[in-house]
Design a protein around this nucleic acid. Structure first.
Length: 865
RNA sequence: GGGCGGUUAGCUCAGCUGGUAGAGCGUCUGCUUUACACGCAGAAUGUCGGGGGUUCGAGUCCCUCACCGCCCACCA
């Protein structure tokens, strides 16, 4: 074996082996249970980024459950991401001076198909490099024929249940995409703007002042609203005002949506272009006037000067006109949020348009209940409240988009005007038999189709074997930004179609930020390519980083050094394995451990393994991977390699008798540790596991280790701690006296090796009197070191220097501690009110501190001992 | 406007039901000891964002302020 672990070839080789052997496909369950995760489908346009690397958490879970013996299925796939993809393709066309309108629908569809065919698999191929054990044979795409059928089925069932309606309502209109978008796809950006105060003349004399950030919409005003409790305006309610410029009379109405304290307390109402105003208009029966074309330009034929202008120009022009009419009172600087399109960043223009809607109240109700009843659990738990808040305040969902890409709405209208939803293209109208049918031109919101993901990927609406076997799923892991867009919607979809939740545990993993704390983004140049990390440090190291930070629930700054530390960890495992199998004939079978020949160090090690096994299993069950990897790192590196392997080295080299036990214990612990680590670091563990004696074809299906509480021995643990303390003290003294000391016997360089046989045969009791002063050069002085109950006699060549001073400082600190504890124990409030166990512990601490002080005294001034 | 999260060693982060602060990286010292220098053995480093309070005792509970980040809202 090489002295270094090289992830590259190992990863490639094992991944190919696993995939070829169909290891990622579900096997028969040994537990009677299944374990299913639907992978959040990445956008087909996207490149792999750190967000996807976080899916490592899902792989950890599925790999763990495979080892537990469950039938495991992790379903991968991709989403067509209608708006995003359309933007990409439109950009391509515009580069060539063309557009989708120019090439026409047919050519466009071909272009889309070609795009899907060529880019579809890239991101999934990249995921393989991270070792993801998803069942690629079940890969799904939201535009697959089967999936389209599921989308249509969902739509038709909603339709039949009366949950879908079409109607004109105010929507968020993106003038660039020329499509409606849902509330969730509007991002609000704080903008420095201006607030305009306009004076509208009131019928019978006087004016009423209104404040607005959008003066250009005044040409669409159909009312002025005041709060009914506002004494200032009470007498004006019911009167008419005359709009400037268009010279159209509109009524003053009372509506309590108006805040008395804001602006002037009077609001111009533009039901056609403002969500709030639309609602006021509905309540007050105000006329809805449209003043915009679908591309966002002014549609105001009665004012030739304005018609066809873009909004900013129209605003300037209207302000001039208002000023000329004396209707502009003042302008104030104003900061407020302006809605932008999530995808193309254009300013959203609310307008009234006929769209398809899903009635949300009946769907939300059960979705609220499952979270309240804790059937649906969130990790971290606080996301439950966020989910509930959204679900409780939900509004109807606008599911139609005026795009050229996506699932067409399966509604056909005949010449007699009968609109009906069909699963497939109908030949004649259900209602009148008319055979001239036209399909609705709109497509569905991407999230309508993706919210069917967990069951549509398993074959729904057909009752397939997969659906029966693997649905509902268990865990859904994703980033928080699609909690409402996707997670919440999957919940109510599943409750509607299955009367069951789609998954029982939702993990919201932290978002990876750039090292400087900014958002990771390609445009900012702050993105980190996970594949570059895989190239540099290996997939295992990259995964370990994700697992470490992923489930803390906190956003995390990217730290390459931490990934690197896991690369070194993999290397450590590699070398520890080299040592353990150095004297083992190739092809050896597992060696059973003979309990009768176990020595204290062996029992200590096995006990520690049991404790770590328990800790890791419990942490995994709580989805807390950070503490799990931490414990495994500490255990494998420091306890197993640094302590145990050093202790048994002499035995390993001896070759027989106790050597065999040491060998078999070391192998046993190593093998179990590899299994515990496998879900997080699959490659290096498989490679090493295959090189040591093992049972089975792959570590992927090796049984998950069970903790053996019988082996955990607190007394032994305390004794080992004591031993290691003795070792440390001896080293310190040596270091104090002469940092450069190196002499025969070499054992002082490696006191653990020196102590090993005492730990073994004579047990720790021999430590009571430990003489390390033999074999020293002439002129050595002798020191006696007391550590707890152990006396160590050391022979050392010269007196100490700087280190003795350090020990002096340590002694002073100890004396301070003693004083502090003393004070505490002298306080009757403490001894009277604190629990007895705590007081007892303080007493013990005091004793220990005194002993330590004594020891330090000896070291600082050898003559005093 | 409302809500949530964060503020702990130089950096990145852990710290469960309150009992005198931990890890990794970095820094410093020594060591090429035949598993590993991608290593080993040691060391140093924190008024736990500020201020109050509860308590025998607070990083941990309560109040309050500040800053950073996120989410929600009919911010005319």
């Amino acid at each position: 074996m090489e002295t270094r672990y090289d992830p590259k070839t190992v990863e490639q080789r094992w991944y190919a082996t696993w995939e070829k052997a169909a290891y990622f496909e579900p096997r028969a369950s040994l537990t009677g249970k299944t374990f299913t995760i639907s992978m959040p489908p990445p956008n087909i346009t996207g490149d792999l980024h750190m967000g996807h690397a976080m899916y490592t958490l899902q792989d950890v879970l599925v790999r763990w459950h495979r080892m537990l013996g469950d039938a495991v299925l992790w379903v991968p796939g991709t989403d067509h991401a209608a708006i995003a993809t359309q933007n990409v393709l439109e950009k391509q066309l515009s580069k060539k001076g063309s557009s989708k309108e120019t090439i026409g629908r047919e050519a466009w569809d071909r272009m889309v198909q070609q795009w899907y065919d060529t880019t579809g698999q890239t991101i999934l191929t990249q995921m393989r490099r991270l070792g993801f054990s998803a069942d690629w044979s079940r890969n799904r795409f939201t535009m697959d024929t089967d999936y389209v059928a599921a989308v249509n089925a969902a739509f038709v069932r909603f339709w039949k249940a009366g949950l879908i309606y079409r109607g004109p309502r105010i929507v968020n209109w993106c003038p660039r995409d020329r499509s409606a978008i849902s509330d969730l796809e509007v991002v609000f950006v704080e903008t420095d703007d201006q607030l305009y105060y306009l004076d509208y003349p009131v019928e019978g004399g006087g004016v009423i002042s209104v404040a607005t950030a959008r003066p250009e919409t005044m040409v669409g005003d159909t009312g002025v609203a005041v709060n009914s409790k506002d004494a200032r305006y009470r007498d004006l309610v019911g009167k008419m005002v005359m709009l400037p410029i268009v010279h159209r009379p509109v009524p003053i109405v009372a509506d309590d949506a108006v805040e008395i304290g804001f602006g002037t307390g009077a609001v111009k109402v533009t039901p056609g272009h403002d969500t709030t105003d639309y609602e006021i208009g509905e309540r007050q029966k105000l006329e809805v006037r449209n003043i915009l074309h679908l591309d966002g330009r002014m549609n105001i034929p009665e004012v030739a000067d304005l018609d066809g202008l873009k909004v900013p120009q129209a605003r300037t022009r209207i302000v001039e006109m208002l000023r000329a009419e004396g209707a502009l009172q003042k302008i104030e600087p104003y900061r407020h949020s302006v809605g932008h399109c999530d995808r193309c960043n254009a300013v959203i223009e609310p307008l009234v348009s006929s769209q398809w809607w899903v009635r949300m109240k009946p769907l939300a109700e059960p979705a609220i209940r499952v979270a309240e009843d804790d059937m649906l659990r969130f990790h971290p738990e606080r996301w439950r409240e966020q989910y509930l808040r959204w679900m409780r305040n939900i509004r109807d969902w606008c599911i139609s988009r005026q795009l050229w890409l996506g699932h067409r709405i399966p509604v056909w209208t005949c010449t007699n005007g009968h609109a009906v939803a069909y699963l497939t293209q109908p030949t004649d109208c259900d209602q009148c038999g008319d055979s001239t049918l036209t399909q609705d031109p709109d497509v569905l919101d991407t999230w309508f189709s993706s919210s069917l993901w967990p069951f549509a990927t398993l074959g729904w609406p057909d009752s397939t074997e997969d659906l029966r076997r693997f649905y509902p799923t268990q865990v859904l892991d994703t980033a928080r930004d699609i909690l409402y867009l996707w997670v919440a919607r999957m919940v109510f979809m599943s409750l509607h179609f299955f009367n069951d939740i789609p998954f029982s545990d939702v993990i919201i993993h932290g978002t990876v930020m750039a090292p400087d704390g900014r958002r990771m983004s390609k445009s900012l140049g702050t993105g980190v390519d996970p594949l570059v990390m895989v190239d540099r440090y290996g997939a295992d190291a990259t995964r370990a980083w994700c697992a470490y930070f992923g489930t803390s629930g906190q956003d995390i700054r990217f730290s390459e050094e931490k990934i690197k530390s896991y690369q070194l960890f993999a290397n450590k495992l590699w070398n520890a394995t080299r040592l353990v199998i150095a004297r083992l004939p190739e092809g050896s079978l597992p060696i059973p451990i003979d309990a009768a020949t176990l020595e204290p160090a062996d029992r200590w090690m096995l006990g520690r393994l049991g404790a770590v096994t328990r800790l890791v299993s419990e942490a995994f069950a709580r989805f807390e991977f950070g503490p799990a990897i931490d414990a495994l790192y500490e255990f494998a590196w420091h306890e197993f390699a640094d302590d145990y392997l050093e202790l048994i080295k002499p035995r390993l080299q001896a070759g027989s008798g106790p050597a065999e036990t040491a060998q078999s214990v070391a192998l046993h612990v190593l093998e179990a540790t590899l299994r515990l680590l496998h879900p997080i670091m699959p490659f290096v563990t498989e490679e090493l596991w295959q090189r040591i004696p093992h049972d089975g074809e792959s570590i992927m299906f090796a049984p998950w280790p069970l903790p053996d509480a019988r082996l955990e021995d607190p007394v032994l643990l305390a004794e080992m701690d004591h031993l290691l303390e003795v070792v440390r003290a001896v080293r310190n003294v040596r270091h104090a006296v002469d940092p450069k000391v190196r002499r025969q016997p070499a054992d002082l360089q490696s006191p653990r090796a020196l102590l090993a046989d005492r730990v073994g045969r004579e047990y720790l009791a021999t430590l009571a009197q430990l003489d390390l002063s033999t074999g020293l050069p002439a002129g050595a002085t002798t020191r006696v070191v007391v550590i707890g109950q152990t006396t160590v006699t050391l022979g050392l060549p010269s007196e100490g220097g700087a280190e003795t001073q350090r020990l002096g400082a340590e002694l002073r600190k100890k004396l301070e501690d003693i004083e502090l504890i003393q004070m505490k124990l002298n306080n009757p409030d403490f001894t009277g009110k604190a629990p007895a166990a705590i007081v007892e512990r303080e007493r013990r601490r005091l004793d220990e501190a005194r002993q330590a002080a004594e020891r330090l005294q000896t070291l600082v001034d050898p003559r005093s001992g």
